[in-house]
Design a protein around this nucleic acid. Structure first.
Lengths: 357, 357
DNA sequence: CTCTGGCACTCGGTAAACTTGAGTGCCAGG
DNA sequence: CCTGGCACTCAAGTTTACCGAGTGCCAGAG
């Protein structure tokens, strides 16, 4: 009815912050928003009354044709409403919405979590996945710090039985790794202390990467213990490379997707920790906080979006928190949740262990 | 065609090892077997030719009526084939089938696994879930040993930073637990060794259950460290009670069930480690190796069957391996797999760490 | 030149009517 | 007792028709 108040935006160039007419952007936003809510194709008439649009459905339709031509929308079939493409979602997150704000309930949930949680890093990270998946109703993934650069703080040999002893290594970042070794002679037990002390003296300060120096001590039984221990350390190096992954709320995936097949394939991706780590790392390395559909390159996850935030302590990235949901996820809320939790985790890991907020 | 070779079994009492006519049992067996294979209601004519039955479909039908009356079978609807009830499955596992035998391929898989696997208990158990879920195409659950009875073998204090130190406790069963403590004064670092040695001397041999004795050393800074450490030990006790749970192949659940809702609820059960542990323990305590449908009492798992085997070392049960699948799972194969893996795990944990088979 | 209302058209989804076939229960005869 | 035969049932598939949300296009108004 009323003529447009703003001067009609030019279709191609508007001088705005993005290469899409203002109105088109508004229409795209409305489609994305509504589709996220309803999971059903959005028709022109549902968009016509949206705030920021206010044109007739016919006009919306013609704009939609353009949006489809440019790859922001698709029609599942003729005579159906439109659905955002990955590109559409991408534009939405890049230009049309910020990280969003958490609702009061969720804010309280976060606060409560960080008040109550206690214990070792591993525990905190593990529980954090639960928090995240509850906040967002999607599956959460948290990657713990890598121990690659950590140095050895202590090496200790503890006898378990006449035949076995345990090598216990403490790293500078607080990680503890152990390995059982076989004792060749029963008498070796007496030399555990000496061998441990010897190794401790020589290895503290080094990283867990070999090759290992094995200075002689002069005592044959001690030396053989030392060799066995160095072997054990070798195998630790390999295992400490792959950082710890925690997955939370995989059950949510069953809610997020219709097709059982999709659920299955996504679940089995989550079982492969290595893939999860590289996925998150890749996304972060590309400076993104969101990877939509095929952007991350993992076929089976093409109907998923991943939202990631780094966990940084003193500017050092020591891990990442991520969320896995359908491409039509609630991006603002999810991004907000991931950012907040990532940040608070960083603070927590930097600060004390009881009350640091 | 041919009259029965055996004297016709009486319907109610046969003097056999089970309270079901031989023929009825055979029919039940055929129904269960075929239903497991096809997942579709089994009609009388499909059973008539089964080995061990060899009567006309009409006769099968009348027997089926009886089996249904007695609660071994149900019809999804009139004019459909029959499906076993939980009771039917129960009879099947109790009287009609043994643990079964693994196929050659799977046998090789198991052998290969135990040849290659190495490392700490936790790693072995974790990987075992993968093996089991691959062997059976169901979800696997392994519960590790509880540390309740383990005694302390070593207590050590390691400084991490001027403000933090790590309490590292080694238990007699090879478990290692750690806890970070805050250092009140910067100078405390110098006393870590003394406090550690003091605690080590007094605590070795005890279990992780408090209350803790805290003998004075005479040095105030050392004593305050000792107190802090005892606090840490306290919190360890709580965490070491709940034994470790490993879940493998949850993605298989998506294959096993049709309804997404079922998948979801089963998955979320698996997320609750405590529930899983008690479930397995309950079943074992009742002397069962299989719990079908509602037998275990967990509502959301009513469409599941659980197959369990204990892992024993020197006659002591130190854990359990379990499998979670649909009630119409392949019981013989599954039971075989679970038993074999449970047994081999026991041997492995009893014997050495490299070649003990 | 842009927006709008109008109009014909498309096509997925649902419902109703019909067909098919696997499966049952029952019964009379061997 | 078992069996073959027969009438009956009912889920699932197929066809047909219809509805309605949604589209593309166009001619006219601002």
């Amino acid at each position: 009815m009323t003529p447009p108040v703003d001067p009609a935006p030019r279709a191609d160039t508007t001088g705005e912050d993005h290469a899409l007419g203002d109105r088109r952007a508004a229409i795209l936003e409305a489609v994305v928003t509504q589709y996220i809510g309803s999971a059903e194709p959005v028709g022109s008439s549902h968009v016509a009354n949206a705030p920021g649009v206010q044109v007739s459905s016919a006009t919306v339709r013609s704009e939609m044709v353009a949006l489809e031509r440019d790859g922001y929308l698709v029609q599942p079939h003729t005579s159906a409403g439109r659905i955002p493409t990955d590109k559409g979602y991408r534009f939405f997150v890049d230009h049309l919405t910020g990280p969003g704000v958490l609702g009061p309930v969720q804010r309280r949930q976060v606060a409560q979590f960080f008040d109550q949680v206690h214990g070792e890093i591993e525990t905190v990270l593990e529980r954090a996945t639960g928090l995240l998946s509850e906040l967002t109703t999607y599956a959460a993934v948290v990657v713990g710090p890598s121990h690659e650069t950590a140095t050895i703080r202590s090496v200790q040999l503890v006898g378990l039985s006449p035949q076995h002893a345990l090598v216990v290594v403490v790293l500078s970042d607080g990680a503890v790794e152990k390995r059982t070794i076989d004792l060749e002679s029963e008498a070796a037990g007496e030399h555990l202390g000496a061998a441990g002390a010897h190794l401790d003296a020589h290895l503290v300060g080094r990283t867990l990467k070999g090759p290992w120096a094995a200075p002689k001590t002069g005592s044959i039984p001690v030396d053989s213990l030392v060799v066995a221990t160095l072997h054990a350390l070798d195998s630790m190096g390999g295992e400490m490379e792959s950082d710890q992954v925690f997955v939370g709320g995989p059950a949510r995936l069953a809610e997020s997707f219709e097709a059982v097949e999709t659920v299955r394939s996504v679940l089995s991706i989550l079982e492969q920790q290595l893939v999860v780590v590289t996925l998150l790392r890749d996304v972060l390395n590309r400076g993104l906080s969101v990877a939509i559909g095929t952007e991350h390159g993992y076929e089976p996850l093409s109907s998923c979006a991943v939202v990631v935030a780094p966990v940084t302590v003193d500017g050092q990235s020591i891990g990442a928190v991520g969320l896995l949901g359908p491409t039509r996820m609630d991006y603002p809320r999810t991004m907000a949740a991931v950012h907040v939790v990532g940040e608070r985790l960083g603070e927590r890991l930097a600060g004390g262990h009881d009350g640091g907020h």
